[in-house]
Amino acid sequence: MQRVVERGTMEDFYAAIRLYGGIAKVREIIKEIPTLSDIDMNFVCSVFGLKKEQLRCYTRRLSRERLLNA
């Protein structure tokens, strides 16, 4: 799913939604993606109605920044 978010077309998104059984399942998968760029995070938040704080990649980034700044 990470590759679809990073490089996919809208057809790829529709195929993933059909493959995984609906938007709710895809939304849960997206929440667990370990790394995404800022642009991709903003895109999935807008399209799937998520908040950045719900994304694993965002919370991991914050944890890493806190560790480095400590």
Rank of each mutant, 00 (worst) to 15 (best):
22 G>M: 13
20 Y>T: 11
2 Q>I: 09
65 E>D: 00
40 D>V: 09
50 L>F: 00
24 A>P: 05
8 G>R: 07
33 I>T: 09
60 R>D: 13
40 D>R: 10
30 I>S: 03
8 G>E: 11
9 T>L: 11
32 E>H: 10
13 F>P: 09
9 T>S: 15
62 L>Q: 10
66 R>D: 03
8 G>L: 06
68 L>A: 06
36 L>N: 03
22 G>A: 12
54 Q>I: 06
59 T>G: 01
67 L>Y: 08
27 R>L: 00
37 S>R: 15
54 Q>A: 12
42 N>D: 14
2 Q>G: 12
61 R>T: 05
56 R>I: 00
25 K>L: 06
49 G>V: 00
7 R>L: 10
67 L>C: 10
3 R>W: 08
35 T>D: 10
9 T>M: 12
59 T>V: 13
39 I>E: 15
47 V>A: 10
70 A>M: 04
45 C>S: 09
55 L>E: 03
12 D>T: 04
25 K>M: 08
52 K>P: 09
38 D>Y: 07
48 F>L: 14
28 E>Y: 04
23 I>L: 13
70 A>N: 10
60 R>L: 15
11 E>M: 13
23 I>G: 08
60 R>V: 00
63 S>Y: 08
45 C>T: 12
29 I>R: 08
46 S>N: 13
64 R>H: 02
33 I>G: 01
64 R>C: 02
36 L>V: 03
45 C>L: 01
24 A>G: 12
60 R>I: 03
20 Y>H: 14
29 I>M: 14
18 R>T: 04
31 K>Y: 09
6 E>P: 04
43 F>E: 10
16 A>P: 04
9 T>W: 12
38 D>T: 13
3 R>F: 06
51 K>I: 03
21 G>Y: 12
55 L>K: 11
6 E>K: 04
58 Y>R: 03
47 V>K: 10
70 A>V: 06
40 D>H: 14
46 S>P: 08
13 F>C: 06
48 F>Y: 15
19 L>N: 14
38 D>A: 13
4 V>H: 00
45 C>V: 05
23 I>P: 03
49 G>Q: 05
7 R>H: 15
63 S>A: 03
27 R>C: 10
30 I>V: 13
34 P>Y: 04
